[in-house]
């Protein structure tokens, strides 16, 4: 069933991480991403992996669930590996016809693979532990602090939450249109790639038409409920930092410090 599409793949448990303010989680994830790029050697990644595992254990989200997020990106990771392996110039280790594999290439691809895998697992940890609604609230509150963007923070978060709201509806719609066209002989499973892509074009037109119709209806319904944009609008939930958030920030800062320190570990593992 396409009905149970999960957006943002939230996995509810009652862990400390789940109870953190969404802003704390978003900021920590951002910091974590930055420090993945600050890390220079394998020690840095090991440290990052250690802290990430710690977070996974505390969050009570099953490990299999966390790793499932990687399934979709295996292909991209492999591609990056191959490209880095082939196209990094340097000291040759192995020559296979025209392909030269260099020591630097091996290092670069190992680094890249670690970085990507840690990055994706880290961000999917955030979305596993944060309900979509909290996520958009958090993003809105954070954008408000950014100069230039602050003024449109409400609009941005409203667009995000409407997009999230309508993804399941549009998926359902697409499914219905596909079935309708299949019943009239459309072929979506052709082996011929060009043919298959072409068969998707007639799906897009009705899907767009219906999306616009929905947008129109929704705009009308929002107006009828006195929507006038972000000005003078209050919220049901107001984000408020708790003690655990400060604690979390301190822990994250320490962890990042550790990752930074690994830059100065002199001995190499590989």
């Amino acid at each position: 069933m396409k009905n149970d599409v999960v957006v943002g793949q939230y996995y509810p448990t009652n862990s400390v991480i789940h109870r953190l303010d969404p802003r704390t989680k978003i900021m920590s994830t951002l910091l974590y991403i930055v420090f993945l790029f600050v890390a220079k050697n394998i020690w840095g990644y090991i440290a990052a992996l250690f802290f990430l595992s710690l977070a996974v254990i505390v969050s009570k989200v099953p490990v299999g669930y966390v790793l499932r997020g990687l399934k979709g990106v295996v292909f991209i990771v492999c591609m990056t590996l191959v490209f880095n392996l082939i196209w990094t110039p340097g000291e040759a280790l192995l020559t296979l016809g025209p392909i030269i594999i260099t020591r630097q290439g091996v290092m670069a691809s190992i680094n890249m693979a670690f970085r990507l895998l840690l990055l994706i697992t880290g961000t999917s940890m955030m979305s596993l532990c944060t309900a979509t609604i909290a996520l958009t609230d958090g993003i809105e509150a954070l954008i408000k602090k950014v100069p230039f963007l602050g003024k449109v923070s409400h609009e941005i978060s409203m667009m995000m939450s409407i997009a999230l709201r309508f993804i399941p509806s549009l998926t359902e719609e697409l499914d219905r249109i596909m079935k309708a066209q299949k019943s009239r002989g459309a072929d979506f499973e052709s082996k011929n790639l060009v043919k298959r892509i072409k068969s998707y074009v007639p799906l897009l037109v009705p899907l767009f038409v219906s999306a616009f119709q929905r947008a129109n209806d929704l705009a009308m319904a929002m107006e009828a409920r006195c929507y006038k944009g972000g000005e003078g609008r209050t919220r049901l939930r107001i984000l408020k930092y708790q003690k655990i958030d400060f604690a979390a920030y301190i822990i994250v800062a320490l962890a990042m410090g550790c990752i930074f320190a690994t830059r100065y570990i002199p001995f190499k593992l590989i």
Partner: peptide, 20 residues
């Protein structure tokens, strides 16, 4: 096409939120 929010109670809150 008239639900705005991703969660039922948030949707119910939409009108009162607009009223400030």
């Amino acid at each position: 096409n008239q639900m705005v929010a991703t969660i039922v109670e948030e949707d119910t809150a939409f009108g009162p939120e607009n009223l400030g």
